[in-house]
Every structure is written in C-alpha cells, then in structure tokens.
C-alpha cells in the first residue's frame, strides 16, 4: 500500500530526548492530524518527515523504502512538501515568483490567482507583492499554504496552519482539506487545536515526545478533550 511511515523514531537534542519511539502511518488519500500541546514534539516529527532533521534512531519509510538518509530536496522531489509554522521572509522576491519557485514550477496565471484567492489573498493585491517585512505572519502563512496548493505534492505537511490566522482559520482549513483531497494529496496537519484536528480523517495525539493515542480524529479529539491534553496513558506502538 502507498504510505509514508515513521518507524520507532527517536530524536535527541543536547542530551534531551524529544521523541521516544514514535510510530505513525500516513496512507495515501487520507488526512491526518498530529495533535498535542506545545512542546509535545509535533514540529520535530514534521521536520523529520521533511528530512530537515535526522532521527537519532528509527527511520522514515516511503512505500516501504527507507528514505531516512534522504535530504529535504530529495524528499520534496518524491512528493513530500511542507508549509512551515513560521514562513521566512524573502527580500526582493515577489509572491508570484515564490509560488512558481522563480519560474521552475510552470503555472498559468489563472492557477496562481485561484490558489491565492482560495487562501484569502486577492490576486490583484498580492501576486506582485514582495514577501518582505510589509507582510504579516498570517499573510505569509497563507502564501505557504497557497504554494503547496500550486505544487500539489503527494504529502502536504501543514505545520500549525491555523496559528497567526484570524477567526476564519477553521473554514480555511476545511476548504484546504477538501481541495487537497480532490488533488489526491495526503495532508498531515500539525496542530494544538482540537477543533482543527477534528477536521481530518485520522489523528495522532502526541505528548512529551510519545504517541498517546491514534485513531479516527473524532475519537482522538474526544480523548484529548477528556484528558485536557495531558498524557494519562501511553499507547503501545501500532
């Protein structure tokens, strides 16, 4: 079966263990949340999936192939891409140029318009704007999401896509999930908001670097709410 997996992943930094034997499976065509409080290790998992961080033990598998040793570009070229929690600023680069990766990604102007407007950025106002300090964090976040919509990767990792956005974030996430599903993209959504996690098909609840619960998102979210996000029970690896 087509899938992206974490197998017994451990991660240690400065002598402190951040992830403890994490196992996760992301099947093609589904949407997943990784839910947990701040400091749970969610973004570390995202960065390990993307290849920015290498696990100190365990591995990452894509369709059964070990891709642990592959770097960020190689993974992106296998179809794994990510919208970052804190998108960078790019002095002198216009949004249109960023979305098309300086012309490397062929896209029609209509497609650029569509993805920008889908994330709530009117094309006329934004396509020609620079990604510099004149844009807010929320605007840059929307640009990151638009870039993945245009890229149509096989796996889209969305790291805290709702943070820094206004009250329309929930609707936007729902719209994005629908759009990614139609494009055949598997979404892996990192969040600490249970209501956002509830919008995906499945969820993993992570706390203190351990997998606490996995299952249908409504079950996991219900458990998360009942325990107020605390690690009362550590589930065995799937």
């Amino acid at each position: 079966m087509k899938m992206l997996c974490l197998r017994n992943v451990e991660y240690e930094k400065n002598g402190r263990k951040i992830l403890h034997g994490v196992n996760m499976t992301f099947r093609d065509g589904m949407s997943y949340s990784i839910l947990g409080p701040n400091g749970a290790g969610k973004s570390t998992i995202a960065r390990i999936l993307m290849g920015e961080l290498k696990p100190t033990a365990g591995g990452v598998l894509l369709d059964g192939r070990d891709i642990t040793g592959l770097g960020v570009t190689e993974r992106a070229r296998l179809g794994i891409s990510m919208a970052w929690q804190e998108p960078a600023r790019y002095e002198g680069i216009r949004i249109r140029e960023y979305l098309t990766l300086g012309g490397k990604l062929k896209a029609e102007e209509d497609e650029i318009r569509e993805v920008l407007e889908l994330v709530g950025l009117p094309y006329e106002l934004y396509a020609g704007r620079m990604i510099d300090k004149t844009l807010s964090g929320g605007e840059r976040k929307r640009i990151e999401l638009a870039s993945l919509l245009l890229l149509k990767p096989r796996y889209a990792i969305l790291d805290e896509p709702d943070s820094g956005l206004d009250i329309t974030a929930g609707e936007l996430i729902e719209e994005l999930l629908g759009r990614f599903r139609r494009a055949g993209t598997t979404v892996i959504l990192i969040t600490h908001h249970d209501e956002i996690a509830g919008k995906t098909d499945f969820a993993y609840f992570v706390c203190a670097g351990r997998l606490v619960k996995k299952g249908f998102s409504r079950e996991v979210v219900e458990y998360y709410r009942r325990t107020c996000g605390r690690c009362l029970f550590v589930e065995g690896s799937p």
Binding site: M50, E52, G71, V72, T73, R75, A76, R77, S81, M82, W84, E86, P87, A88, R89, Y90, E91, G92, I93, E97, L101, G102, K104, L105, E144, S147, L151
Partner: peptide, 26 residues
C-alpha cells in the same frame, strides 16, 4: 530557514540560494 523552506518545495540548495540572492539584489 529561507533555504530549507525553498528546498522543501523541490529546489536544490544552489537553486534556492540563487533565487534568494536574485531577490536580495533586485
């Protein structure tokens, strides 16, 4: 952060650096 975020969209490190520098120099 700029490099890795562009690389996560499929650019090599050199391609990402070139795009960033082009932007900086206008």
């Amino acid at each position: 952060a700029q490099l890795v975020q562009l690389m996560a969209k499929g650019l090599t490190e050199d391609e990402a650096a070139e795009l960033i520098i082009k932007g900086l120099l206008g």
